[in-house]
Amino acid sequence: MSEELKVPTMAEYMAEGKQPEILFWVGSAGSYDDRAKKITKAFVKILHKAKVDFAVLGTEESNTGDVAKRAGNEFLFQMQAMMNIEVLNAYEVKRIVTCDPHSFNCIKNEYPSLGGNYDVVHHTQYIKELMSSGRLTLEGDTYKGKRITFHDPCYLGRANSEYDAPRDVLKKTNANLVEMKRHRSTALCCGAGGAQMFKEPEKGNMDINVLRTEDALETKPDIIATGCPYCNTMMTDGVKAKEKESEISVLDIAELIANS
């Protein structure tokens, strides 16, 4: 992307006395991780294309506390949650969209009892919404006939029973959608959840992401589609471990849509 992205903040909206349609919750991975930043930018590109009035919190956003909670640190989680809720409530945020299923699950399910009540949407759900309301249309045939297999993120799928939105969006690309043997509610975790992303795995005979990559390779895909920045890292590493990176790309649904 050569042009600089226009990314307005809530503070700027506030200064103009306006409210955006949605708050885009970028998340820690989306803000700092080099691979995840590409997903963030792709999603912003989609938002611009669909002429969505959006804003981010920018430097006022802090980690949701999700990973601390799953590691067992309820204190840190609730501190983070309450700080974020104070900011979100001060801006009177109503609707939040995020590319990270962990942030999605955490804000949607665990913030309400701490005083944070918002309509929280995963970006695949939001893209589907933009498509069905006609605000976003795909012109190109970039992926026509390509074999794409979708890896369900645990915190979107099993955790929140959303299996269809990512698939519905992918179908719009005219790609050839192929399913792994373990998919939807029986999908295998990529291995990053529950704070595993930040530590070495316990002793075993294999890494979880490699096992999951084997599931994906069985479908002989051209592209492995993901809907979570952590899954993306894990699957990318898995594909590298299998030395298939020249044949198979691992792309977030936001990237797939932004490119088509």
Binding site: K69, E74, Q78, N105, K108, L114, Y155, N160, S161
Partner: peptide
Amino acid sequence: PKGKFNNL
């Protein structure tokens, strides 16, 4: 939802 863990 299965993803919702209780808040202590």
